[in-house]
Design a protein around this nucleic acid. Sequence first.
DNA 1: TGCAAAACGTCTCGTAGAGC
DNA 2: GCTCTACGAGACGTTTTGCA
Length: 475
Amino acid sequence: MRPKKSKEQLAELKASYMKNHFASDAEIARLMKITNLTKGEIKKWFSDTRYNQRNSKNSHVIIFHDGGPREGSSFSSAANTPIVIDSSDETPTSPHPPHTPPVKEKETRPKTWNPFPDFTLQKFKEKTPEQLVVLEESFERSSTPTDEELSRLRTETKLTRREIDAWFSERRKVPSASSSFPDSERGKAETDGTEEADSYSPSASSSRKDAPTPQGSRNKRLPGYSKKDIRDKTKKTPEQLHILKCAFVRTQWPTPEEYDQLSEESGLPRPYIVSWFGDSRYSWKNGNLKWFFQYQSGGVERQSGGSGGKPGGGRKRRGRNRGWGRSRSRKQPKRSSYSSADYNKCPPSKKFKTGKDILKDYYLKHHFLNEQDLDELVTKTNMSYEQVREWFAEVQKRLDMGADPFQELPTGRADGDKRGELGETSTPSEEQTSPGMGDEDDDDDAEEDDGEDTDDSEVWEPSRSVKKSLSVSED
DNA sequence: TGCAAAACGTCTCGTAGAGC
DNA sequence: GCTCTACGAGACGTTTTGCA
């Protein structure tokens, strides 16, 4: 059961939303007091509301009546004022109401972590000693709370079901509270009034000294701990990193099952793994993932301390190819499936099909790139939009120069040639749209991808960044 | 049963710190 | 200075839930 927010809570949230679609810290603090919701819940509500309003059918003009769309409870005085919302969603500035300056979302975001002294616990979704007592008591009764119990816990602790679930999940990993939750740690947590107790789970219980602190979110800034302490606690071991890196080389978008599997394999909490993959993708996209090629080239086998092996020469693997924009209608992309054994052995790349031939065939047939066929080409070749365009541009260029247009053309990583041809000279941004596309089991995946991706190709569109770069290149 | 709200999972992106 | 890593924030699409 997911308890809905009460009318009063919604009214307050909506009233606040009316004033500003991006709640300030002060406003959130106020809402937290009034609504008894956590900061995360409030922010989530704002985020979802912005999103939903943009996507709603008549999102250009949103009117919150008193008490909201359904209920007629009291509401703020500003509630009768229509709000014009730009639903273009092209920039993060759109959700801002007219009376607020068009500040970019990223600019509104604090540059650094901003302490929130009065609401530290909520801010970090950390649990108070009282909450922990309730949770512990419940856990002692049953390690797997019923829905009823969850609801009760939620009511009592004011935590979200997700948080409670996560706590139980982590708590179950701990053999016993006494052994896993050292007094010193508990004392610290309690005296700090932080959720260190919450983090007692793997970090304190695991023999892996670097095992991080899980509990749903990976981010736990613990007052009383130095940043170094925190980083040390959350730092992954070389072995764990190796497992993750091997998995990353295989696929940059693991399935949920694979995340689970990796979590088991590495002993890391799942959220950490998900985050790590996200970070790695971002680094990869920006060309900052130096270890990637070492792993991909097979130069790293069973390493025991960071990346090693022979450098360079590897092909990037396709994870989620063609750039998966935020606006993409998101089915789960086709992802590789592999056994857990694969995680450790970083299987060597194998030869895969080339998208070059597809492009060549297309070119021979049409002699130019028809924009309408771009999606299809991207799908078939496992190349990015940019790469396809690049390929055609190169053909044209070579034709203009009177050279053989098909000799060693850049087909990107779809056929593994890009590394040696364009890849070495391409900028990270040039590579960003199709991380590691094509390669090894893409031989197989490519076939499957074609089918599945084609299904979603109707709704897929390149990410904003891709679109942007494309439009630039078009210019 | 259909709709709307809420929850959920995962994404990208920017940034800071640690280590080399 | 560079690379890697961790973290915070918000966006987005899907699923679940509650209610008329």
